[in-house]
Design a protein around this nucleic acid. Structure first.
Lengths: 211, 211
DNA sequence: CCGCCTACTGTACTGAAGTACGATAGGCGG
DNA sequence: CCGCCTATCGTACTTCAGTACAGTAGGCGG
């Protein structure tokens, strides 16, 4: 993925170029050529929230990482809340920048160690809460189907599920078929093909949305 | 799983019993008989943090949900930070209690809707950060294998992966086989049988650990 | 009583996945 | 040069998953 570094004066730093030899540098007031992952060097005296929001608008949803020469945890929080995918030191080592890019490109977010520890300390046990938001699949299934679903989501074979629930594989297949039906797996044309236990697992594990 | 409700006076409420007919009730000052999932009715005037910490110590790591008759978001945060797995209204409907138990027993945590929304608003984009911690699978795979892995983890068929990477299905199978090998899927005897893309998906999505 | 839902089950079939037998080709380091 | 690694690929086979044709039985509500 292309890395675009934006700053007031289109500067290019050694650590940036060392991390991404083919990077592109541009100016904050002209983001038309910005492609791929966009890194924004925070200008002094600018409110983080407004900056990030404005840029996200003009960048049309492209991934944005905020670079700060004087990192602050409050700014980090504001940037992330405004929609940035990452926040790190503008002078960070190349390896760190690469790590950030990797995480962000894979749908993750990145914040510095200090802030990460602070956030994780308060939210560490909240992370699995995501499962709750995505447990709506249960409302579509009968109790027995739910029992089978839990095993299936962990990768159990029909044979193993049958053993666990003391039923035949044939019945497991019936339950799986019901899940596929009720959770509308494979029903959308833009997601051709996949109508299998894998998609069920993704839904039950909260990685994909139920349709 | 056994549900144990602890309070100052070993009380038993209708909503509790309706949610869990076989519940056990006990007193806060004697947790020796507490088994399974432990629900603690918060006594008035008690600091949440100290209470939770003390109980977690005497409960030897058992799962603990704090019940509050006058729920407060600050108390919820404190309880969770102190290690509680859940925080909800002591008068909550039986269905809610069951939902809480289910979430907690499945490794999740539970907080009320208001706090959840507040936390999710500030942490929503932090949730995928969990992926960073579990991306060690990448270090075991070649770049090309990693590319295939990402598609596989999202449920793509070999045929679809082949199309995306402009290779044949045969090569996709080779990459999948390499993943299974390098990530040691199916190698442990206590997890008999499962040596397939499903297990790979669980590992890559951070749901199972790489062995 | 009837219809619907849930839970369970058999037989038969097709297709995808995984594995085993290979193979070629290029790059890199000793 | 050789060995190893990576990326790619063919043929053949077995097994599991998913689907289609059914079916029985019990509970519940209109």
């Amino acid at each position: 993925m292309q890395q675009t570094f934006l700053s007031l004066d289109a500067r290019q730093r050694n650590n940036w170029r060392e991390a991404f030899p083919n990077l592109v540098c541009g100016r904050l007031d002209d983001v038309s050529a910005a492609t791929g992952l966009v890194w924004v060097l925070q200008p002094a005296g600018h409110g983080v929230e407004g900056l990030v929001k404005r840029l996200r608008l003009s960048l049309a949803g492209r991934l944005l990482v905020l670079l700060a020469d004087e990192p602050s945890e409050d700014d980090a929080m504001a940037a992330l809340a405004a929609g940035a995918s990452g926040y790190c030191n503008g002078h960070a080592a190349p390896e760190v920048l690469q790590q950030v890019a990797m995480a962000v490109e894979n749908g993750g977010i990145w914040v510095g160690q200090g802030l990460m520890q602070r956030l994780l300390a308060s939210t560490a046990r909240l992370l699995p809460a995501h499962k709750i938001a995505d447990s709506s699949w249960r409302t579509s299934l009968t109790p027995r189907e739910q029992e089978a679903a839990v095993f299936l989501a962990r990768g159990a074979s029909n044979k193993e599920i049958a053993r666990q629930l003391d039923i035949t594989e044939r019945t497991v297949k019936a339950h799986v078929g019901a899940m596929l039906e009720k959770l509308h797996v494979g029903a959308m044309l833009e997601k051709l093909g996949a109508r299998d236990r894998m998609q069920l697992s993704l839904i039950i594990n909260g990685i994909e949305k139920q349709r």
